[in-house]
Design a binder for these strands. Structure first.
Lengths: 274, 274
DNA sequence: CGTTTCGTTGAAGAGTGTCAAGGCCAGTGG
DNA sequence: CCACTGGCCTTGACACTCTTCAACGAAACG
């Protein structure tokens, strides 16, 4: 759009200055390590809303660190149904699925204008060899994604619509908070249909459940704008204790369950997963 | 049980002789590499049916290569619901979820008496540094697991009970075949409830759908024994073209869809995923 | 300002879940 | 060897959640 020269200049990377550093880099890197890294991260790239950063079947040649924006990953079934497998925001690293067979296995689509840092894979490979900390960090990221997906499988496999949506909202809230935004008020970048695909629900169900939450004063919804009014209430729904639609179950039981929930140690980051 | 000395002796590892090598090792390792590897793989371990190799919250200190047997991974929701996230058989590497935070995030339970090779993590780390091929192979395994889980999410998020079970049976069949067993006749090592948990269904639904498949001559079921009679029929169900219960949909459309299905290139190994 | 996409809501129906009863099988102990 | 037990599987009837179909309103876009 603008003069490409100016773009290239302004887009030169500086991981050391990047305020997303804590999100995508391992802790305790030396200055020298970071210099190495800045050689790796060659350039940035901008994707407009609706465009794909890559598509299933494209040759895998890079990972991407999201600087700004919002994207979805999705896979397609043989008969054309789309399944959104995750939503990504600033600080996330995407493209991890491409490593398996050197071909991306999912589509990555920008839900709003997005800017990413390109991490070319061949240089990443070199770097891993010279920098054990980097290699380990990379493996951790992959493993974290596996753990996250375990949480989604739990959600898809054993939760009701209300639990899924409560968990979804709380998870988004948490991620916004980590990035310095409000945890209680944010704008959904995806459509109801995309939320539904991610949660294994139809868009009408998503809309209805959000309305129900709104009616019960758990949240305020206005199209894409969401404000959380009652975190505790949402958490109770995730734990499968309260169903806003039906007669409230035995309150004593609910409290006992809440106690039980306080105990577990591991925080998966996915509401509802122990 | 037996004399532990004898056990230790017979249990000394020999990756070079192991007939599962192609499954768990990267191709093109030098003899020297393999020698290194055999230092890594210290000992084996036996787990009896019903026992856990590890549990969520246990300190992560090793990966395991399954030599013989059958296991399930499962995560638990805060209110006690179990979600089976995968079934593992010989040649699989398990424990990948532990790397993320150095603590396993799932339970790994043997569904039959099982024998595994222990890959202590500290030695794996060393090895990765001296052996780039190993490090890359390891990253690929992690990425493959991510791709597999994408397939499961597709299944859980957008398929009907019959499609899920057809996909499940075909996937098992394929994995048995890869290991030299019959692809058309095998024994399920897991219960209906465990299949249901994995597929996001109740055990009664699993039972009913299997009965329906049996009634339609797609398979023969006798408790845990399954024989596939009609692969094509199962594949059609996965593609969402045929529903055995209902009136057959427009046949022409089905054929068109089948054509569309033939085109895509990537084989995810998960029936139904492009 | 028209067109399109997106979101909400209602009514009816399909697909699974729930509850319950009974059968099959392996293991155990008399 | 047989009866008993407990776990697993099957099947039916009914309830319920979610989907489907449809209509309409609101926002976004060119």
């Amino acid at each position: 759009m603008n003069n490409p020269n100016i773009n290239m200049a302004t887009l030169r990377v500086a991981c050391s200055n990047c305020n997303l550093r804590e999100l995508c880099l391992p802790l305790g890197l030396s200055l020298k390590d970071i210099e190495h890294l800045e050689e790796l991260v060659s350039t940035r790239k901008r994707i407009k809303r609706g465009e794909a950063l890559y598509r299933a079947g494209d040759k895998f040649d890079a990972l991407y660190a999201i600087r700004l924006g919002f994207l979805k990953s999705a896979v397609m079934s043989s008969d054309g149904r789309e399944q959104v497998t995750s939503f990504h925001m600033s600080g996330d690293i995407v493209g991890l699925d491409g490593l398996a067979s050197m071909v991306y296995s999912s589509d990555l689509i920008a839900l709003e204008d997005t800017e990413v840092c390109i991490l070319p894979f061949d240089r990443l490979e070199e770097l891993s060899q010279n920098m054990p900390a980097m290699s380990l960090h990379f493996q951790r990221m992959l493993s974290k994604e596996i753990v996250r997906q375990n949480g989604v499988m739990l959600l898809l496999g054993s939760m009701h619509a209300e639990e899924r949506l409560a968990a979804f909202i709380l998870n988004l809230s948490q991620r916004f908070e980590q990035r310095g935004y409000s945890r209680s008020e944010f704008v959904l970048r995806m459509t109801r249909a995309e939320i539904g695909s991610y949660l294994g629900l139809k868009l009408e169900t998503v809309s209805r459940v959000l309305s129900r939450f709104s009616h019960d004063n758990l949240i305020v919804v206005n199209q894409k704008h969401v404000q959380i009014m009652d975190f505790e209430g949402l958490r109770n729904i995730v734990s499968g204790q309260v169903f806003v639609t039906n007669s409230p179950k035995n309150a004593t039981v609910a409290i006992h369950k809440a106690d039980a929930m306080a105990a577990p140690s591991i925080d998966s980051g996915i509401p509802g997963l122990r």
